[in-house]
Design a protein around this nucleic acid. Sequence first.
DNA 1: CTGAAAGCGCTTACAG
DNA 2: CTGAAAGCGCTTACAG
Lengths: 344, 344
Amino acid sequence: MKKTNSGKVSIRDVAREVGVSITTVSRALNGYSDVSEKTKKKILEAVQRMDYAPDANARSMGGKPEPTIALLTSELKERDENGFVYGMINGLFQQCSAFGCEFMLLVTNVVKQEKLSFLQLCKKKNLSGVVVTGLRTGDPYYKEVMNSDIPCALIDIKASGKYKCNITIDNVSASQKAVEYLIGLGHKKIGMINGQKIAEVSGERYSGYVSALLNAKIPLHLDYMRYGDFVEDTAFAQTKTLLEKHPEITALFCASDVMAIGAIQALEEMGLRVPEDVSVLGFDDIPIAKYVYKGITTVRQFPIAMGRAGGEAVCRMLNGEPVESELQLPYELVVRGTTAECGR
Amino acid sequence: MKKTNSGKVSIRDVAREVGVSITTVSRALNGYSDVSEKTKKKILEAVQRMDYAPDANARSMGGKPEPTIALLTSELKERDENGFVYGMINGLFQQCSAFGCEFMLLVTNVVKQEKLSFLQLCKKKNLSGVVVTGLRTGDPYYKEVMNSDIPCALIDIKASGKYKCNITIDNVSASQKAVEYLIGLGHKKIGMINGQKIAEVSGERYSGYVSALLNAKIPLHLDYMRYGDFVEDTAFAQTKTLLEKHPEITALFCASDVMAIGAIQALEEMGLRVPEDVSVLGFDDIPIAKYVYKGITTVRQFPIAMGRAGGEAVCRMLNGEPVESELQLPYELVVRGTTAECGR
DNA sequence: CTGAAAGCGCTTACAG
DNA sequence: CTGAAAGCGCTTACAG
């Protein structure tokens, strides 16, 4: 691969065309005031005529790097069911545009993480900061991120360390509100289909569930909670075994809408009607939530806001502004058709 | 902003640490065979110990650019209803990984396009090729893309020119099949809610609609087609006026599922039952399609495959391999609950 | 207001 | 098997 300059016009070409030095072209393009209007105009014209644009890589090398913030996410799933990935891309992109920095999407997995450390990745890509999502506690990057001095916003990952900020919602109180709503409908035997055991949000959402019960003086039944792993099929199976064993349950709090869908299918297959026999309350408000089964009652999260907040936190850190180690975003209980007064 | 090297370890640091020249470090890292195993090992160890990784920008400058393919898309909408953007990101990403090149997401709009020409953008970002989607015929980039010598795959945009490839499905035959399915159910008075008038696919899908009618010797009624602009609300309104004027219509072919949803709402509001009174057939198979109204009968497209095919086409062009100017991907008629035998 | 020169962190002929 | 040197396309003190 010879370096024939590949026909690409460089700053040198523009300089030659106009008859000035590359220094002058560079300064004109960078908006320095010490270039005469006349030559500036000639340069700008030549730039347009020649379709020239400074190579961002070279600028970066030359000392004018464009700060770039990456969204680092785990392997992309076939479908973005909950719209979280798209939402966060969108939100971070917005924030980057507003702040004048570059956006980059980085997808990782364990194999990649073992090949290239987090720090190496940041150096390679020249990252100023990163918004992290979907990292598992066991992933190599998990610790590396925490131990790094790179400004990071972590979505739904407990943050600690220098330049780290955890973007989340108050999962405990959100779940508590949700379960309180069920209690308010007269339900007392309330089951829970939780996410993966290792996920931090699972612990938090279970805490909210427990609090709501305790506050209402409803005895806690440990066997009422099952792990659906955030997966429709697992939730389906768990719901079946749960309700076979505890047919007295009249309401189900699911830690995600995807699991709520699995749960509802299981209930229907068992001949139980939703919400007449069993109420089901989900979490996330995924795009399809309002369409399924006349609408799932759920706790809405705002993925775009998360992406935006993540970007904002990173920008603040880059500016040396103080950022709290945890940032809680709003959530919202959305009442739809899968919940109703307790009939039993 | 002083250039203090910002604590970043460079190839020089590694060379110093190991006691060799940067030339040797570079060659060891690039897998050249003419480095002794012993020094190579020492270098690799130092690299890990120091968390060094070559700056991609510098590599690019030095003569080893990583080819990068961008997904260029119009302004991101609040929600990716049809999952196309996510799907194409995913597909292109997969293809880039497989081909060993970098992925980049670029979002544009008219204002940006007027500021920076397509060629300038490509030079700035050092793009090897780009997969284009969502560009409107009137956008400044539309012509610039066609006139450029940059390898481009255009999703659902008629391609022409050097290194251009149009990725699409056979919209004519897909629509024809869809309408033939309605005809097979006994429908003869079939309306159509089309996309925007200026969109190329609108013309194609209308052609398929017309062909199906003609082949079945059903007279074409020009007033049976309305433009729903690919928008739910517009489709809603158009469906109302269409069915008020032509209550004899028993089936509706919609050029997108989003419009199908709008249409169904309009029908229900008019007291018409779907599919008993009016059958509705959509297009795309968006993620919610199978959940809404017991499932929308629709024509499935595969956005991931489109992204992948786009990336593949670009890679081929980069390799100097021949690529057809139009690549047609498969589609699939998915029969669900919004269509039924004609009852009138 | 303008230009020659150094430097950014790499890679790669070239010479040994 | 190894290193000194040139060059990639920029930016920015520095000197005029």
